[in-house]
Simulated assay, not measured.
Amino acid sequence: MWEEGDFVSKGTLIILSLMSMGSWYILITKLIDQAKIMKQSKETQAKFWKASSIAAGSAQLKEGSPFRFIAETGTKATAHHDGALLEQIDLSTWVTMSIQRAVEKVQSRLQDGLSFLATVGSTAPFIGLFGTVWGIYNALTAIGMSGNASIDKVAGPVGEALIMTAFGLFVAVPAVLGYNWLVRRNKSAMEDVRSFSADVHSVLISGAMSTSEAGRAAGAKKIG
């Protein structure tokens, strides 16, 4: 098939092969990333909330952990709520916005590559069908030029052309199944991330308010 095909058939086959390899690469790497996040979620529950503070809990988490990233983002937002413009936003809103941006970055990283799987799943069958149509056209043209239209002369080239459609489906089906599977696993992972971010937000706000109230009380005593 490769030796007898023209540049269009070979190009179609190469495109489908690249799409298949890309799909499997993304599927495997995203599964590894999701497994890491789920493992880090369990470690966070076991270590983070036993620490004396958010900063101490963050230090116990691994570098690159999305949970550490969210905790550090919230801590920085609480500590750097200053400046003429930022002071116009109340602390709770500022911390909420900062943590929400961190969560969105984690979600964006989890979703990297999923659009490629969706594209492969939706286009690979049509690319394979194009290869089949082109192959049948060339086969019928060659048969017409030879003047021999017997069934054995037609069946061989047409059968080879149909392989392209089968190959397109072979590429598309794993991509679609992998996409749906990864989306479901992403939802599960993001539930843990959002739950953690909400808890961190509550702890940071309650701690900041307690510190602020203590400062005002100390100031009132000095004045008195």
Results as ranks from 00 to 15, higher is better:
205 I>N: 07
160 E>H: 05
205 I>Y: 05
194 R>G: 03
186 N>G: 12
191 E>R: 13
190 M>D: 08
204 L>Y: 04
169 L>F: 07
175 A>E: 02
177 L>T: 15
157 P>Q: 04
202 S>H: 14
194 R>N: 14
179 Y>F: 15
157 P>W: 00
174 P>K: 11
200 V>N: 02
161 A>M: 10
165 T>Y: 05
169 L>R: 08
169 L>I: 13
154 V>H: 07
189 A>N: 13
159 G>P: 09
171 V>F: 01
205 I>R: 03
169 L>N: 06
192 D>R: 11
166 A>H: 01
164 M>E: 01
163 I>M: 12
199 D>F: 03
195 S>R: 13
196 F>K: 08
186 N>W: 02
194 R>L: 11
186 N>Q: 13
195 S>P: 04
157 P>T: 05
167 F>Y: 12
185 R>C: 06
171 V>E: 00
154 V>L: 12
186 N>V: 04
196 F>L: 05
184 R>M: 07
154 V>N: 08
193 V>N: 10
178 G>F: 03
187 K>G: 09
164 M>Y: 13
170 F>K: 00
201 H>F: 08
159 G>R: 07
184 R>S: 15
159 G>H: 07
174 P>H: 09
199 D>Q: 15
156 G>Q: 11
181 W>C: 09
182 L>C: 00
185 R>I: 11
203 V>N: 11
196 F>D: 06
188 S>N: 09
205 I>M: 10
166 A>W: 00
174 P>C: 07
169 L>T: 06
198 A>Q: 13
201 H>D: 08
176 V>R: 07
159 G>M: 05
183 V>C: 02
166 A>S: 08
189 A>Q: 03
158 V>E: 01
198 A>H: 12
203 V>A: 14
160 E>D: 08
167 F>A: 15
197 S>W: 04
163 I>N: 05
201 H>P: 02
174 P>N: 09
198 A>M: 13
191 E>A: 14
195 S>W: 07
188 S>K: 14
183 V>G: 01
185 R>P: 05
193 V>C: 07
166 A>C: 08
177 L>N: 10
174 P>D: 06
187 K>F: 01
187 K>W: 00
192 D>M: 08
169 L>H: 09
173 V>Q: 05
174 P>I: 11
187 K>E: 07
171 V>W: 02
174 P>R: 12
163 I>W: 12
195 S>E: 12
182 L>R: 00
161 A>P: 11
194 R>K: 15
156 G>C: 02
180 N>A: 03
203 V>P: 05
171 V>A: 10
177 L>H: 03
175 A>V: 05
183 V>T: 14
167 F>K: 03
205 I>T: 10
187 K>L: 03
205 I>A: 00
161 A>F: 06
155 A>P: 03
174 P>Y: 09
189 A>T: 14
